[in-house]
């Protein structure tokens, strides 16, 4: 769906994006992670043809960008760096204008489609109020509604839950999962690890303009081959597990060996009380930190 090759953007002497090769496949919910200022938004803008790349290639839905923008972008819904709308018009009027503005917005179905997306994002009740009276969360929902208006095959969302309350975040997450289930590919750029961890199937991590990691989330979070044991009987456990303990932290032990059942049987038969036991998995935060720690450049430094 999105494929970039050695994508690079230089603003003057600053290298904002450096040789990024993304691969977002059909059916992914792709989490695009990176700290503020790591080049996420610039990359998203290049994919959408807003910012022109210094070098490198972009394919969006199989077509070269920005050249084929008019064809490819009709099947893409986007939310880039916060929503925007004409404040003096209602949410409904804003959607109508945007839909009438380009190709693919069939007039006959417009009113019905607007009703549908307003319902989907939970704005059905306030669609007729002028946007300047909307809260930040409502504007965010309106931006999402605009992205969904033409049932895109690909959704490109930059920080879609910005400004939403926990209830709203949950609603949007459920909406995205529902859209994904009906065949929409989602490209989600975010700095919120928890959001990506709950939602995404694949992740790419950008660090100071470089893609330092790109893989399936399940693979990144696969069991590490070690088992975590919580027990109050530290001394006895240490005797039993002689040499297999890799790390100890109060009543928590990290033990070499992936077979949790075998370990549990051994500890219990040896008289060790176990309060908690399970295979060790790395959290996304650990994965991301490990990947980003390896490069040591500073943001915005000339290279």
């Amino acid at each position: 769906m999105i494929r970039t090759a050695a994508l690079t953007k230089r603003f003057g002497s600053i290298l904002a994006v450096d040789g990024v090769s993304l691969d977002v496949r059909a059916g992914d919910i792709y989490g695009f992670l990176g700290a503020n200022g790591s080049g996420k938004t610039t990359t998203v803008r290049m994919i959408l043809g807003l910012v022109l790349a210094t070098s490198g290639k972009i394919q969006l839905l199989g077509q070269p960008m920005p050249g084929a923008g008019r064809a490819a972008l009709t099947e893409v819904g986007a939310l880039v760096e916060g929503p925007a709308a004409y404040g003096h018009l209602s949410g409904r009027a804003n959607l109508g204008l945007l839909d009438a503005m380009g190709k693919g917005g069939v007039r006959r179905t417009r009113a019905r489609r607007i009703d549908e997306v307003l319902e989907q994002v939970g704005l059905a009740a306030v669609g007729r109020r002028p946007v300047k009276a909307y809260s930040l969360g409502m504007r965010q929902r309106l931006g999402l509604a605009a992205a969904l208006l033409r049932q895109p095959r690909l959704l490109v969302l930059d920080e879609p839950t910005n400004g939403l309350d926990p209830q709203g975040i949950r609603e949007i997450r459920e909406l995205l999962l529902q859209l994904h289930a009906s065949g929409t590919t989602v490209f989600l750029s975010s700095h919120l690890l928890a959001e990506v961890e709950q939602l995404c199937t694949r992740v790419g991590v950008l660090d100071r303009g470089r893609l330092v990691l790109q893989d399936d989330l399940a693979k990144l979070q696969a069991p590490t081959g070690r088992t975590v044991v919580h027990t109050p009987d530290q001394d006895r456990a240490r005797v039993l597990l002689d040499g297999r303990i890799e790390h100890r932290d109060r009543d928590r032990l990290v033990v070499r060996g992936a077979d949790a059942a075998e370990l549990n049987a051994m500890l219990v038969s040896g008289g060790v009380r176990v309060t908690e036991l399970g295979p060790e998995r790395r959290s996304l935060e650990q994965v991301v930190l490990a990947a980003t720690d390896t490069s040591s450049h500073q943001v915005g430094v000339t290279r």
């Binding site: 803008r45 043809g49 008019r70 009709t74 986007a78 880039v80 760096e81 925007a84 709308a85 004409y86």
Partner: peptide, 10 residues
């Protein structure tokens, strides 16, 4: 901010 949404409309 509406310029970017017009351009990606497209």
């Amino acid at each position: 901010g509406t310029l970017r949404y017009l351009l990606v409309r497209p």
